[in-house]
């Protein structure tokens, strides 16, 4: 899954730690999402989108390979 989290975070002038505090997760979790190692839950994706004042589908988008794998 592709994401524009780093870009949107920079647009909002926010550090990973600040975003992590606002959505109540660890900084490592935000970093893992940004580098594509972890796909967040629906709840967390909505929280991040809300904090960054954007929509979930503007932040996250499916890639070709996502249709073939289960996770």
């Amino acid at each position: 899954m592709k994401n524009l989290l780093k870009l949107e975070r920079a647009r909002n002038n926010m550090t990973q730690a600040e975003l992590a505090t606002k959505v109540n997760v660890s900084r490592q979790t935000i970093n893992s999402i940004e580098i594509g190692r972890y796909v967040p839950s629906t709840m967390l994706a909505f929280k991040i989108a809300f904090v960054l004042d954007t929509k979930v589908d503007a932040l996250f988008s499916l890639e070709e390979g996502d249709w073939d794998s289960a996770n």
Partner: peptide
């Protein structure tokens, strides 16, 4: 200490 969904995962 910082318990979130990534930790649960």
């Amino acid at each position: 200490k910082t318990d979130d969904e990534r930790t649960h995962h």
